[in-house]
Design a protein around this nucleic acid. Structure first.
Lengths: 178, 178
DNA sequence: ATTTGCATGTAATCTGTTACATGATTCA
DNA sequence: TGAATCATGTAACAGATTACATGCAAAT
């Protein structure tokens, strides 16, 4: 499906960047819905260059360090917009190890089952707090024509997801304690 | 991480089964949090047999058709229970192509953005209805010591997840229409 | 000087999907 | 007798992770 291709093109469509900066975006902006490490990004950038989707200029940082500043091409932008506007069917539900554990948790002694649930609850609550903190950076809802609007929507989605997860685990704990 | 291994051991810990029956479980019971197709299952069963986690007896169906009925061994059960009770850190947020699209949706003309969101909303609403229908099969909350209790918890989680997703998309639509 | 971060790449391995391949059983 | 389902496997490929490998720049 080449999703990484489009994730990269989408970022470069917003702004020209180096591979390193792209990597940082996966650790921050895209964190809540996509990930990729540098060992996957650099080969893909090479491939996209060969395919004419992107091109780069070498910049010198300091005296010798070379970095490649990638820019999206016309062909790249077209490919990206085609992917974005093409209607994709709803995918498989994502795999979730924690839910798999909960599914099998009746094989666990009561206190271990509760431990499993409670440990996870505190972690999700911490993540939720972290996300809510991020949301404070928006003092108002960004204009819908800006890139920040997309940021805002997915952050809102991430918060709702964590809230739902916390609620679910709490319900599980309650049912286990009955 | 060998998660498929533990997913299979967990099912065989509940009941001896053939590879085909295991496959069916991934299409039904585990559908909302794990998946695997037969081309992944059969080699893994072979490996687990070699590792002494499971063993099989050949049964004859009809006159010639051989099927392998797999049973978990003591070593398999121990390995499964160790995995289940061992505390695992919270994983990476799962990848989500739809959220990636929403993130980039400011590059789309207004009507296409709304189309993207509304198409997805109806699909998630359909999935939600389907799940709520499944829940009707439980006329009461199963006893927490039974396997059905795990089924109930994850089904509840799937419903909450779909409800949250629908709410999120609705909010996105509202914000786009402002 | 030393540590942290910037910067780029490859190799080996693991996990998962799609396609290839075959054949029996059951039900209409 | 034909279609759907049961039943089991392999091969090729795609996608992703972990480990290997290197070296500069900036800040302390």
């Amino acid at each position: 499906m080449r999703t990484l291709k489009y994730a990269l093109l989408g970022l470069l469509n917003q702004q020209s960047m180096t591979g390193y900066q792209l990597m940082k975006h996966f650790e921050t902006t895209l964190r809540e819905f996509w990930s990729a490490n540098h060992s996957q990004i650099y080969p893909e950038l090479k491939r996209l260059t060969e395919e004419g989707m992107i091109e780069y200029e070498i910049e010198i940082s300091g005296t010798v360090l070379e970095k490649k500043l990638y820019t999206i091409t016309k062909a790249g932008r077209e490919s990206f917009l085609e992917w974005l506007s093409c209607d994709a069917p709803i995918g498989d539900t994502p795999k979730d190890v924690f839910r798999l554990r909960v599914f099998y948790s009746s094989s666990l002694p009561e206190h271990e089952r509760l431990e499993l649930l409670e440990n996870h609850l505190v972690r999700h609550q911490a993540r939720l707090n972290h996300l809510k903190n991020n949301q404070k950076k928006f003092d108002c809802i960004p204009d819908k024509s800006t890139n920040e609007f997309g940021d805002y929507l997915v952050l809102m989605g991430a918060i709702m997801r964590e809230e739902m997860t916390c609620e679910w685990i709490k319900k599980c704990i309650d049912l286990c304690k009955l």
